[in-house]
């Protein structure tokens, strides 16, 4: 009702006043609609982040102690050999899991992008289905698929005379077991690559075909450059999610290492940074120490995300059409 009055008055020469009245009204409405976020931001982001930084300088244990210890946690982290072990494991899955996952996702997308083949939607659904299996269910499934004596993978390997390893109990193979499962669940990346491939203009390929370029040459000279922004985006996103590797590792590690609950699996071979963080915080209640670990993780992730932003910015500018 109020706005009616203002709008009608506007032509009367009191334009400036009504504009500022309008603006004040919009400020009030904007604030009202944004208020859930503002409250949430304060309660679920600002306050906890502040507390986490504060905790990281204390020996907080959730119950009794909360003394200021300066940089002791950070110094301890530097001297904690499990931190280095967990960082090493995290780097392992990042450096092997990321390229492998991306190559398979892209390969599947390329197969789905073939022209003149019927039933592509059926194949697309089939490749995507594993992603829909909830992560805990899929971890259970793969602990069975990768079972040393009776599992699916070793049975199939047996057909070719390859003795499959004990994926889940041999520390050399446990991380590979996780990576195999992650590659099976690469459907989301595949869909993204497929969308990118479909945005490459057909005329590029036709021109190349007329010039006599074969499929391999077309892939490296046309497809790859055209979808490179998507690849960069995907690689960095995948790296960030690997830094935060937790759920699969938690399920695998806690079920293959019966001795100490949520340990790091056989020989701590599945002790990843975030699993170790969880163990420190919620099994040993070293909240101060774990907070310092979380703060360091945030720094790593923010730097990496800044890189994603930079690349996605580039992909917006890079328009083939």
């Amino acid at each position: 009702m109020k706005s009616n009055v203002i709008v009608e008055r506007a032509p009367d020469g009191s334009a400036r006043l009504s504009v500022s009245a309008r603006q004040r009204r919009f400020n009030r409405i904007g604030l009202m609609f944004a208020s859930p976020w503002i409250i949430g931001f304060l309660c679920f982001t600002i306050v906890p982040v502040g507390m986490a930084i504060y905790y990281s300088f204390t020996n907080y244990d959730l119950f009794s102690r909360q003394d200021w210890v300066w940089f002791q946690n950070y110094v301890d982290i530097f001297h904690d050999r499990y931190i280095w072990k967990s960082l090493g494991n995290t780097m392992y899955v990042t450096l092997i899991g990321t390229p492998l996952g991306q190559v398979v996702a892209l390969a599947l997308a390329l197969l789905l992008n073939q022209r003149r083949i019927k039933g592509i939607p059926v194949f697309r659904t089939l490749f995507y289905l594993p992603t829909l299996v909830p992560i805990v269910a899929s971890s259970m499934l793969f602990m069975w698929v990768l079972n040393g004596n009776h599992g699916l993978l070793n049975t199939v390997l047996g057909w070719f005379g390859i003795p499959g390893p004990y994926w889940l109990s041999d520390p050399k193979f446990t991380k590979m077991a996780l990576i195999i499962m992650d590659v099976w669940r690469c459907g989301t990346g595949m869909i993204i690559y497929l969308a990118a491939l479909r945005s490459v203009p057909e005329t590029f390929y036709e021109a190349a075909e007329l010039d006599g370029a074969g499929p391999v040459r077309r892939f490296f000279s046309i497809t790859l450059p055209c979808i490179s922004p998507t690849i960069e985006f995907q690689v960095v996103m995948s790296m960030i999610s690997h830094f935060q590797y937790f759920t699969q590792a938690y399920v695998f590690a806690s079920l293959t290492d019966m001795s100490n609950g949520a340990g790091g699996g056989p020989g701590n071979s599945m002790l990843f940074y975030c699993l170790y963080l969880y163990r420190k915080a919620f099994l040993q209640y070293k909240m101060g120490y774990a907070s310092a670990m979380a703060v360091l993780l945030a720094i790593i992730v923010i730097v990496a995300t800044a890189i994603v932003m930079y690349f996605s910015e580039k992909s917006v500018n890079y328009d083939v059409e």
Binding site: I29, A34, T45, F243, A294
Partner: peptide, 28 residues
Amino acid sequence: VPWKGGKIIFPIILFTMMIPWQVTQIPM
């Protein structure tokens, strides 16, 4: 809604998306 806050809030939202949940998990 044409108000100033929108331009301030949106970059903050983008920034909060970068904070890993492990950071807020312990205080929460």
